[in-house]
Design a protein around this nucleic acid. Structure first.
Lengths: 202, 202, 202, 202
DNA sequence: CATGAATGAGAATTCATTCAT
DNA sequence: CATGAATGAATTCTCATTCAT
């Protein structure tokens, strides 16, 4: 019975988180009311406070849940015995696939967290930085092995790489870039081609 | 006399805008109260509303003022008889210099506008897009002349390029990238080196 | 349980409406603050907005609630098989009794709505007109049957009739007419005597 | 020169009052801003405060100016050696003509003053009452001479009489009564016919 | 007299959070 | 667990009035 109700509690929590994602994606964090989330989840809105301490905590949870998956993915990629370029491709692919699978979550993360220098971005800076550092580590290893040029610092290269990807997501979010499935597929190749190969003709 | 008071009015407007930039940079748009702006500008509360219709209009003005300068700069760059790579370098340089000269304004634009898909970003989408299009046009011309590879679409390359730069600004804003003057100088070269030259060793 | 809390909700709404009537009667609609209403109702400020969308909606509700009762009363009077004079007496009696029973509500309606040509009066014109039309219909029927003279149009007679009554209420509100219970009783007869019988000696 | 500028001052004051009448009629007293009045008068809005102490004083002036003319008119009518019925007709005629000549002023008086039991109406109660008393005096004299029936008190008859007229103005203001010139003419006869003759057939 | 910038007290409304049931 | 009524702090915007020029 405890297991049963605990299981229900988990599901209800999930229900709220998923509803919050849709509402935050639609209205933005500031534009969203807790009552909107409750309505979207079809629950009484006092219940939200049984599962979360505050509206902030909901976004924190949404972000951390997904971001930790990404951190794990980056870690896994780094452990693979493949070239730096392949590792970067794998990371780009993971992020792009994350968007394809659940665009709302990525929209919320990109729009409400990773640039929110005075609120959530600052609060989760350590986590965000961990991703940058992981990418930088890939670049650094590539530079050490001679696979990548060492004219730019790894940290800088990591920012350029991550920024390029996030901007592509932003382009989809704003609908200024074509976001059909084949475009999303192509984007993975494009990002690597641009960042690794460079725009210059050889 | 009319000139005098008109001049004063312009200056007071400027005073408010400059104060608002500092406050928005410090607290974020949502965290900033109109009274904070008035206090920062050392004027009476109500005077803000003598010069601006609303808090939103203040941010709109801050954004458009600076963004239009950038659009002009991009236009001017495109008119120059230099290579695509040089044009991209000029654009990157302009944006990075803008940050160096007035980091608060760029922080506000990057943090509160260009990714704010449910508020100001959406409202100014046409302006934002104009910048992307200008960059894409540079890439397209470079591809036509054979200077740049045409394996990625100009629109895509423009997003990657702009995203890389904006992420560097973000890195400075969050202080995860070294932002000393020499780093800022170096960043210009790095961005071009990364995006044009690519990370791959030759 | 649902019935219980629903019932409570209804009662609280009533509590707010009744408090608002007292406050509007005392301070006028414009002079009344929402906080005055909350204080008068002995509830928290924000609860007013749980039950009503705005301060305007409170007055709308107060007006419509009572006015619809009056429209029903006029309709009922018109259905009675009595002379036009008796019908007019019944209408006058109903209005005067409404005032006697709840002078604050009538004060609010007369002072804040029925002459407020740029706000509530205009907003509720259709409802207000319906009352005029009902009275005019009584006059018209009386004229058709020969009971009343047809030297004035029914619409005009209705306005004179209604205006005479409302002015008597105004006299009580301003305390320029004696408003003791016996005066109120007498007023019913007086209105009919004046409007139907005329001031002229026979 | 003093005369000249004093004359100008008088004219400017008039300009403001006339503009205020139009604005109050259009927006209502509460909806009108002092700046609206200045704009309508085509003057700088600080100037309003050279001629009037406050927004309230403007309405006070508008009211008193016209109301005193009416009090004078009623006094003059009472001095005439004509029947009570003729005197009442003259009063009704005066009010109706006042509306015809300047509907905005009468609209402002009727809408913003004579029923405003918590603001201007209360403030000008003495003046308002003087008009009622004048009319009551006419009725009383008519009753003494046997011309009018004495079944109702003069004060009550005065209220019915005045209320009927004001309601007709209200009908024109709300456009629920036909207000063409011939209707306005007819109204004078109608009011007297209704109040003095009564609605009853003989 | 004339101007309109400057002031600041108010007031409505919102909404995250709490809590009694 | 669930409900949604209750709370009240916070904030934007308005606008009458003052005042320096």
């Amino acid at each position: 019975m405890a297991a049963r109700s605990s299981q229900q509690a988990v599901e209800k929590r999930r229900l709220i988180l998923d509803a919050a994602v849709r509402v935050f994606a639609r209205e933005g964090f500031n534009g969203a009311r807790v009552s909107d989330i409750a309505e979207e989840a079809e629950i009484a809105y006092g219940l939200v406070y049984h599962y979360f301490r505050s509206k902030d905590e909901i976004l924190d949870t949404i972000f951390l849940e997904r971001w930790n998956v990404m951190l794990e993915a980056i870690k896994a990629v780094r452990a693979q015995p493949i070239s730096a370029r392949e590792q970067l491709r794998a990371v780009a692919s993971f992020i792009v696939e994350s968007y394809r699978r659940d665009p709302d979550v990525m929209k919320v993360i990109v729009v409400e967290v990773t640039r929110a220098a005075n609120s959530f971005g600052r609060a989760h800076l350590a986590q965000i930085r961990e991703a940058y550092d992981g990418i930088a580590a890939i670049v650094e290893a590539g530079q050490s092995s001679g696979e990548l040029r060492d004219t730019v610092t790894p940290a800088f290269a990591a920012m350029a790489f991550y920024g390029a990807i996030e901007q592509v997501l932003t382009g989809w979010i704003f609908e200024v870039l074509p976001g059909a499935p084949e475009d999303v597929d192509q984007a993975k190749a494009f990002v690597i081609d641009t960042i690794c190969g460079g725009l210059d003709a050889r």
